[in-house]
Design a protein around this nucleic acid. Structure first.
Length: 565
DNA sequence: AATGTTGGCGCG
DNA sequence: AAAGCGCGCCAACATT
């Protein structure tokens, strides 16, 4: 069912191939119309972007089952054709279909700046799509139908049409889930967070008022003073890497940089306070009181997730640093009373993905076990650690010290697995693109890349891209699996408590590459665990087909995220 | 004053 | 323990 917000809202029924099976139907109250159809027989909604439409629906209490997100799928298809970065909006895609000038994408200023598309009731004049938010508010149902038809055709023409169709469905589901996670929010105890900060840093400077801005908390200032004293009173700002390096030099110590890993090996009285300062200053700057004020409201942290924001298909976030929350702050993530958190983490995901990708029988047999590295240990003289180093080196392209010989063992014992990533590396070095299992495609080299490869240190330039493509096939295929996991888990969670009102049902509230969190009423916790486990198995079959490789989840049912590991 | 780059570090 | 990959965010610093 195609849907646009033009003139209040327009729906148009579609066949599987994207051709309309009836005339456009105008809806005065689009949210109510969508809700009614979801209750009767949920269709697959085709719309310009869940990013634009779905938050408003959720605020109106409307959940949809599935959709085709034209903007996200356009990105996938452009990428598949090695045309990354071209405009992907509905307006841009429609312009390409018609062969007219393609408008640039409108930079997204974040959720606060989003036009309320469903407020557009009665906006009668249809503007040309793509000239900004005013035009977006009067989307054209014809554009939705035409772009969808074109995408259905392009999916069928992809290298692996079935996989690309699955990727399009999963990415679209990701768009729904991202909006739902932002809507529900991650439970976040501001009081616990504040207490942690106060314990570690001292009281909030300035009592929270504006006069406190720019002042160091007491503990940070004390450490900064210790650093200065250790340099015999020489003024040095511990926030400045350049000043740190200079201060050490004038103390007779040469350091290559001010990195903690470098300073750790330096014997000087300034090192200890400096390392502690850096750790605490980071917490204060990135996730301190200012972060708390900005990002936590009403007991929820609501980051803005960017689906497919990383070329590998991983999600990114804008603002809030949701994917870099320091482990120490997991203490502040606490379930509501009567609720629990189900924290599920895919164990050793990337080497398992490599095993499934490569079809290496010996390697896949090892990946059929709960501890893959332990199962591989025999091949490396019984040393689990060595197996792990060999695998990480193969997937990342690093090989220093021990890893060189361990890679040799890997090549000998598991030639298909080693060959898979090495073929990807060679493709990258040659300037070709590589794809994930489901067809997500790495960007082609930049226009200047070939020049640089044939210039001085061209070998290093080529090898660098080889490491990127070597890792891409694994990381992006892992992202394929994780996205499938998420989509299947969402469907299974909806099934398991569907008669209950939304406020009493389990919700996905967090997703971080290979880990997800469900916030659920206690009584559903066991069912949630079962649903997520089943989703992991189903995702493996969907993405990789028949394979002996298992994708076990480590699942914890906890009140507090910090207790999950 | 505003914008862009660098160094560093949090997460997977 | 880090290595090798992918990110976002901050303060300091450089440039316009």
């Amino acid at each position: 069912m195609a849907v646009s917000s033009g003139g209040g809202g327009v729906l148009r029924p579609l066949a599987a191939d994207g051709s309309p099976t009836g005339p456009p139907e105008r809806a005065a109250d689009l949210a109510a119309e969508i809700a009614a159809r979801e209750r009767a027989q949920p269709p697959r909604w085709v719309w310009s972007a869940g990013r634009l439409h779905y938050p408003r629906l959720l605020r109106a209490g409307v959940r949809i089952s599935q959709c085709h997100d034209l903007e996200l799928v356009e990105s996938l298809l452009l990428g598949h054709a090695a045309r990354h970065g071209e405009p992907r909006s509905l307006a841009a895609a429609y312009a390409r279909v018609r062969g007219v000038a393609v408008p640039d994408d409108v930079p997204d200023a974040g959720p606060a700046a989003q036009p309320s598309l469903f407020d557009a009731t009665g906006a009668g004049t249809a503007a040309e799509p793509g000239t900004g938010s005013a035009a977006a508010a009067a989307e054209d149902i014809d554009a939705v139908v035409a772009v969808h038809r074109d995408q259905v055709r392009r999916i069928a023409a992809a290298e692996h049409p079935g996989r690309m169709a699955l990727l399009a469905a999963a990415e679209s589901a990701g768009g729904l889930i991202a909006a739902e996670m932002a809507h529900h929010g991650l439970p976040w105890r501001a009081d616990v967070h504040d207490r942690l900060l106060t314990d570690l840093l001292g009281p909030r400077p300035g009592g929270g008022g504006r006069h406190g801005v720019g002042l160091r908390p007491r503990r940070l200032q004390a450490l900064a003073d210790e650093v200065v004293a250790a340099f015999d009173g020489r003024p040095v700002n511990p926030d400045s890497p350049a000043q740190i390096v200079r201060a050490f030099r004038s103390a007779g110590v040469t350091v290559a940089s001010a990195r903690s890993s470098v300073l750790r090996d330096v014997d000087h009285p300034a090192v200890a306070p400096l390392l502690e300062y850096k750790e605490l200053a980071r917490l204060h700057a990135a996730h301190g009181w200012a972060w708390l004020d900005t990002w936590v409201r009403d007991g929820r942290f609501r980051p803005e997730y960017i689906v497919g924001g990383v070329v590998s298909g991983r999600w990114a976030t804008r603002g809030g640093g949701a994917l870099q929350i320091p482990k120490v702050l997991r203490r502040a993530v606490v379930a509501d009373p009567g609720w629990v958190l189900v924290v599920a983490d895919a164990a050793q995901l990337e080497p398992r993905v490599l095993a499934a990708l490569a079809g290496d029988e010996a390697f896949a047999a090892a990946a059929a076990h709960g501890d893959l590295y332990a199962a591989l240990a025999d091949a490396f003289g019984g040393a689990r650690d060595k197996a792990k180093i060999a695998l990480l080196s193969a997937m990342y392209g690093g090989a220093t010290g021990d890893a060189i010989s361990l890679l040799g063992v890997l090549r000998q014992r598991f030639p298909a697995a080693a060959g898979y990533v090495e073929a990807a590396a060679r493709a990258g070095e040659a300037g070709r693109v590589v794809r994930s299992r489901l067809g997500r495609t790495c960007p082609p080299p930049s226009p200047t890349w070939r020049e640089r490869v044939s210039g001085p240190s061209g070998g290093a330039v080529a090898r660098s891209r080889g490491r990127f493509t070597r890792n891409f096939v694994v990381q992006a295929s892992a992202a394929d699996w994780a996205l499938a996991l998420l989509a299947v888990a969402r469907r299974r969670l909806a099934d398991l408590a569907s008669p209950a009102p939304a406020a009493e049902r389990p919700h996905l509230v967090f997703f971080q590459h290979d880990e997800l969190i469900v916030h659920t009423p206690k009584e559903h916790a066991d069912a949630v665990v079962a649903a997520v486990r089943a989703a992991a198995t189903e995702a493996g079959q969907l993405v990789f087909g028949p394979t002996p490789v298992v994708f076990p989840l480590e699942i914890a049912v906890v009140d507090c995220y910090a207790d999950a590991k």
